[in-house]
Every structure is written in C-alpha cells, then in structure tokens.
C-alpha cells in the first residue's frame, strides 16, 4: 500500500520523475564505470589516467571526450569514476551517521531523564557549530584522505538523525499499543524491537537515504579545500579544485577552459539536484499535513 503510493506519486509528478531519472542515471554510470571508462591503474581504479605532464588543460577531443584538466588528467574518466566515488561516500557516510543517530536517539528516548538530557545536549553542541566548519576541523586534524573525510562527515551528520528518531520514538512510546504490550507482560527489549522501532524508524530511513545528495555536496566542498581526496583522484570536488587556476581562462578568451569547471561542476549539480527533487517528493508523501 505504502510503496505503491510512493511510486504512483513519483510517476505522476514531473519534477519528482526528473529527480528519479537523474539519480537512476548516476547510479547506472557508477555501476558500469569499469565498462564506461576502463580501469587504467588496477591498484587504484580511482586514480585518473594522466595523458602527459603539460600544465594547461586541453579541450574535448576524440581521445579525451570531456577534455583534460590541469596536468592532463582525463575529465571523462574523472566524472565517471567520480560518480562511483560519490555513491560510495554518500552511502557509507549516511549509513554510519544513521546508525550512530539511531543508537543515540533510541537510548535517549527510551531511557529518558538524565540520559536523555545528556545525549541531547551533546547533539546540541554538535549542532551549534556550522557543520562544514566542524567537518573541516575534524578532517584537518585527521589528515587529508578520503577515509578521514568520511569520518569527519559522519561526525557532523549523526545529530540530525538522533533528534529525528528520538522525537518519533517519544511519540510512539506513548501510544496505547506500547502500554498494551507492557500489560501483556512484555519486557523492555521486546517492546523496543517489536513495537517501538518498527513504528518509528521509517521516516528517518527515508530522510537518511535522501540526505545522500547533501553529503556528497559537503564531501565535494572538503575535497575542493584540499581536505579530502588527493590530486589525481577521480573525485568531483577534487576536479573542481584542479580547475581553480583556469576558471578565468585567457585574456583573449575568458571562457577558454570552461570544461574544467563546467563538467565536474555540472555532475555535482545534477547529482544533488536529482536527490533533492526526489527528497521533496518523498517529504510531500510522508508529511501527513499536506494532501
């Protein structure tokens, strides 16, 4: 019943259909990356092939479909494998952030009182610092590396899930069927796992899956600042970072190197746009106040 409603809504609404198509397109690109852009360094498929050591980017050509960026890294390879890396980062970070948020939110809501107060003030502290700044500090402390960047992103993403799940559990906890389970003799773990979580986790799961776009955007920001992927990695943020010197082009032609910015930038733009459109559709469906 529920799934049909979501799919029907996605098919009938043009913007949500566009979002779904965009995300599906990037998912296919990520899935078939080894066929779309054959691996050239089998130790690290995310390492972009370097055509030569010349500094200036080269425009799109038969050999390099999307052109090359600074130091002759192939943009086509970078965008295709970047899609795979984007999904990897987005899914991993969201999964772990959700897991931490789930544990913290559940413990806070279930036990309540002092524990709740303590855990929620902790999440407030994380919330109080702008998330990008906090992620930058953590990433800089751990050292520039994709894995460290993912840790930093997870560390700033979990509080929103903790809050969301806590709220949902608190509302479900008071329902009569939870009390009914208690009067039947059920103990805490059984009530939590069989009654409370199945009735409170679903909105959070959907919200989490739709936050992937935002996580990828933040990851790109960190890579752009040099706190994530290293030069030569097929990462969209990294590709934009390498285009930094070529944004303005030459004095005769300000748009001479447009492809170095527009292609990876466009990939990020479309990827995040897709998730956001899909997210809006889901939020409309899940919000009972909107008809």
């Amino acid at each position: 019943m529920f799934k049909n409603r979501i799919f029907k809504r996605i098919y009938t609404n043009k913007t949500s259909l566009a979002g779904f198509m965009l995300v599906a397109f990037f998912a296919l690109v990520a899935l078939f990356a080894p066929w779309l852009a054959p691996v050239h360094n089998s130790n690290n498929p995310y390492q972009m092939p370097q055509r030569s050591y010349e500094i200036a980017p080269q425009p799109p050509s038969g050999q390099n479909w999307f052109g090359t960026t600074e130091q002759q890294y192939d943009l086509y390879y970078g965008v295709v494998w970047g899609a795979r890396l984007a999904f990897e980062i987005g899914v991993t970070v969201t999964f772990f952030a959700f897991l931490i948020g789930l544990c913290v939110g559940t413990i806070a809501a279930y036990f309540g009182g002092k524990i709740d107060e303590l855990l929620m003030r902790l999440t407030d502290i994380v919330f109080a610092v702008p998330s990008l700044v906090l992620a930058m500090v953590i990433a800089a402390m751990l050292g520039p590396d994709i894995k460290n960047m993912m840790i930093a992103l997870t560390a700033v993403a979990w509080p929103s899930y903790a809050r969301l799940i806590r709220g949902d559990i608190l509302s479900v906890k008071r329902r009569d069927y939870v009390t009914a389970a208690r009067t039947l003799g059920a103990r805490g773990p059984r009530i939590l796992l069989r009654h409370i979580l199945p009735n409170s986790i679903y909105p959070s799961v959907v919200v989490a899956s739709l936050d992937i776009g935002y996580v990828v955007l933040t990851a790109a920001s960190l890579s752009f600042l040099g706190l994530g992927a290293q030069p030569g990695t097929a990462d969209w943020g990294q590709l934009i970072a390498m285009a930094r010197n070529w944004v303005l082009g030459t004095s005769q032609n300000p748009l001479a190197y447009w492809y170095t910015v527009a292609i990876p930038g466009g990939a990020i733009f479309l990827f995040v746009l897709g998730w956001n459109l899909l997210g809006d559709a889901f939020r409309d469906i899940l919000d009972p106040r909107q008809v």
């Binding site: 009569d176 069927y177 009390t179 009914a180 389970a181 039947l184 069989r194 009735n199």
Partner: peptide
C-alpha cells in the same frame, strides 16, 4: 488480569 483499552485505533500495533 488483562485489560481492554478505550481507543481501538491506538491500542493495536498497526504493523
């Protein structure tokens, strides 16, 4: 000792 609740809509787990 068992109990029947007031609201039949909220006293049964919907899932």
């Amino acid at each position: 000792m068992q109990v029947v609740y007031q609201d039949p809509y909220s006293s049964l787990d919907p899932r």
